[in-house]
């Protein structure tokens, strides 16, 4: 049986160093359980809207354009992923992460952290407010940029997914190595769909629906 060979992200140095060269091994049908953690649904957090546009009550709003991001998490059959833990993180409006390992010269916004957790509701829905992240140069040595994006981690049920949401119109979209690897699926699946928000708390909304697979097919039959 021929296994899947992972592709190396073009122009990505780390990808060249860290991507396995051997094909992935097939998992015998008799032993599929156990490849992804199954975690109990978390209790609803009940803390209301996750708002990353303010670092704390009474502090100034973070720099840049405030946006709403919302969507629904479901499996391939359309069933909602309830009470999943959603982690989101992104750069600030200048393209700098509030992370100790981000040593770039982009400006740090003292009023923005840009990292948060939320829980999906009974319909798999989620919503949060944040700042439109800036793009940033990831490899100054070869001029490789990362377009605007928000990182998502979904932990719940029998699924485990880490993905990124992108924004239409970023000049660096087409040269992004991950986007190139995703091919045609990128525009349909990974780009937030713009919508007008109801109030003026945010400038614009982006809908990002996420479809997870049970990494362990046992649980999805």
């Amino acid at each position: 049986m021929s296994g899947k060979i992972l592709r190396i992200g073009p122009t990505d140095n780390t990808s060249d160093e860290r991507t396995p060269r051997s094909p992935l091994l097939a998992i015998p049908k008799t032993a599929r359980r156990g490849f992804a953690p199954w975690l109990n649904p978390r209790p609803a957090s009940g803390t209301g809207l996750l708002d990353l546009t303010h670092i704390a009550p009474g502090k100034p709003r973070a720099q840049g354009s405030a946006i709403e991001v919302s969507g629904r998490i479901s499996d391939g059959y359309g069933r909602p992923l309830r009470r999943a833990v959603i982690e989101v993180w992104s750069a600030n409006t200048h393209g700098r992460y509030a992370h100790k390992d981000d040593q770039t010269d982009y400006e740090l916004d003292p009023d923005f952290i840009g990292m948060g957790k939320l829980i999906s509701d009974d319909d798999g829905g989620y919503v949060f407010h944040t700042i439109l992240p800036g793009h940033y140069i990831a490899r100054p040595d070869i001029g490789r940029w990362r377009p605007r994006h928000i990182h998502f981690s979904i932990l719940g049920g029998a699924s485990r997914l880490i993905t990124q949401m992108y924004f239409k119109g970023d000049p660096h979209n087409d040269t992004d190595p991950m986007r190139i690897l995703m091919g045609d699926k990128w525009e349909a699946l990974q780009v937030g769909k713009e919508y007008a928000t109801a109030d003026n708390t945010t400038d614009v909304g982006y809908r990002f629906d996420i479809t997870v697979a049970g990494k362990d097919a046992v649980f999805f039959e």
Binding site: G76, Y77, G78, W89, H99, D102, T163, Q164, A188, T211
Partner: peptide, 23 residues
């Protein structure tokens, strides 16, 4: 079974170098 799984799955993407430590 393939056709039952109708919705295209969201693509996996790199976690990047800045996964929030405090998570």
């Amino acid at each position: 079974r393939d056709t039952k799984n109708r919705k295209p799955l969201t693509c996996e993407d790199t976690v990047g170098p800045y996964y929030p430590v405090q998570f």
